[in-house]
C-alpha cells in the first residue's frame, strides 16, 4: 500500500449513492493520484456491490462492501465499526466522508475508534504524505476561514461540505468489489434507525440543494411563503428561511439558514425579504451567486449580494417565477 491511499465512505440512501459521494470520490482521486496513491470506497448494506460502476467511474479502484442486513439503515455504532475496519484494511492515509447528516455523525466516531483526528466540513483540501492533510474550513459560521492540518496522525479524516467540490466522472472501469469481513460487527446493531419519516412532498433539503430560495420578515405573513415556494418549485430549489420567521413559527426549523440553522453553499441563493442579520449572513455568504430582493436599499443583505433587486417582492417574485417557468418551457 502506498502512503497516499484514500478511502471514501460511499453513503447510500434508499439504495442510491448520493451526489456528495461523487464529489468526495473526485476529491479523493485528485489527492491520491498526485502521490501515487489509490482510492477505495466503502458501501454498506444489502446491494452495496451494485455501485461498483459509479464508484469506478469517479475514481475508486476498489469497492469494499459489507452487505449485512442490519446495515440497511443508518446505525451509528455499527457504521463506525465498519468504516474504521475498512480504513485499517486498506491502510488508508486519508479517509473522506461527505459532510451530510450521516457523515457528520459517523466520521468523528470512526476517527475516535482509530484515535486519530478529523477536519470537519472542509471546503478545500490538500495532501502530502510528509506534511499530512491540510484543509480550509469556514469557522464562526463562515465569519472566518481557518486553515487546519493533521500533520502526523493517520488515517487523517475529513468531512467534505456538499456542493463545494466538483464531481467529475472519468472513463475508468468499474471498481473491483471486495466483501469486507468485520469481526466486531454484532448481528443486530444496538442503536439503529428504526424508521424514516419523510418530509412533505419529498422536499429538498437546504443543505444539499444547488439552489435555495429563502424568505424572511419582508413576506409579512406566513401564507405569503407560497410566493417563495412557487419560485423554488420552478427552479427545483429548496426553501430556506431566516431565523426571524422560524422563531415566529411560520416555517419549521429544518428550513432555517444561518448560525443556529443550516450553513449552506449553493450555486444560487435567492433571499426574499431578508434584511441580512449577521447570523443569517453567516449561513449563506459562501453561496456562489446571491440574489437579494428587498425594498430597503440600506439592507445589509445587499453588501454581500451579487445582484440586488431593490423593489417590492410581491411584484417581483410572481414575475420571476413566471419568467423562469417560460425559460424552462423553452428548454
Amino acid at each position: 500500500m502506498g502512503q497516499a491511499d484514500v478511502l471514501v465512505f460511499a453513503e447510500r440512501r434508499e439504495g442510491q449513492i448520493k451526489r456528495p459521494v461523487l464529489e468526495a470520490l473526485t476529491a479523493a482521486r485528485k489527492l491520491a493520484t498526485a502521490h501515487g496513491g489509490e482510492v477505495s470506497a466503502l458501501a454498506l448494506g444489502p446491494g452495496a456491490a451494485a455501485h461498483a460502476a459509479v464508484a469506478g467511474q469517479y475514481g475508486a479502484r476498489r469497492l469494499l462492501v459489507v452487505e449485512a442486513p442490519g446495515l440497511e439503515l443508518y446505525a451509528p455504532e455499527a457504521y463506525a465499526v465498519a468504516l474504521a475496519a475498512a480504513a485499517r484494511h486498506v491502510e488508508a492515509a486519508v479517509v473522506l466522508v461527505p459532510a451530510t447528516a450521516m457523515g457528520r455523525d459517523l466520521a468523528p466516531r470512526a476517527a475516535a475508534r482509530l484515535a486519530t483526528g478529523c477536519l470537519s466540513d472542509v471546503t478545500d483540501l490538500e495532501f502530502d504524505p510528509r506534511q499530512g492533510l491540510r484543509a480550509r474550513r469556514p469557522v464562526y459560521s463562515g465569519k472566518a476561514i481557518a486553515t487546519v492540518a493533521i500533520p502526523k496522525a493517520r488515517p487523517a479524516f475529513a468531512t467534505l461540505r456538499p456542493n463545494v467540490f466538483p464531481a467529475e466522472p472519468t472513463e475508468s472501469p468499474p471498481a473491483a468489489v471486495e466483501p469486507l469481513q468485520v469481526a466486531e460487527l454484532a448481528a443486530t446493531p444496538r442503536v439503529r434507525v428504526v424508521r424514516v419519516e419523510k418530509a412533505a412532498r419529498g422536499e429538498l433539503d437546504v443543505a444539499e440543494a444547488a439552489i435555495v430560495v429563502s424568505g424572511g420578515r419582508g413576506l409579512r405573513a406566513p401564507e405569503n411563503f407560497k410566493l417563495v415556494r412557487e419560485l423554488a418549485e420552478v427552479l427545483g430549489a429548496a426553501v430556506g428561511a431566516s431565523r426571524a420567521v422560524v422563531d415566529a413559527g411560520w416555517i419549521p426549523h429544518a428550513h432555517q439558514v444561518g448560525q443556529t440553522g443550516k450553513v449552506v453553499s449553493p450555486q444560487l441563493y435567492i433571499a426574499c425579504g431578508i434584511s441580512g442579520a449577521i447570523q443569517h449572513l453567516a449561513g449563506m455568504s459562501s453561496a456562489k451567486v446571491i440574489v437579494a430582493i428587498n425594498k430597503d436599499p440600506q439592507a445589509p443583505i445587499f453588501k454581500i449580494a451579487t445582484y440586488g433587486v431593490v423593489g417590492d417582492l410581491f411584484e417581483i417574485l410572481p414575475r420571476l417565477s413566471e419568467a423562469i417557468r417560460r425559460l424552462k418551457a423553452e428548454g
Binding site: I145, A146, S286, F302, V310, G311
Partner: peptide, 20 residues
C-alpha cells in the same frame, strides 16, 4: 493531532450590482 495554522476573514464578495 489537529493544528490550527491560520485564521483569516473571508475574501470580500464583489460589489453588488443593483437593479432598479
Amino acid at each position: 493531532r489537529v493544528v490550527w495554522e491560520r485564521l483569516e476573514l473571508p475574501s470580500p464578495r464583489p460589489a453588488c450590482r443593483t437593479l432598479e
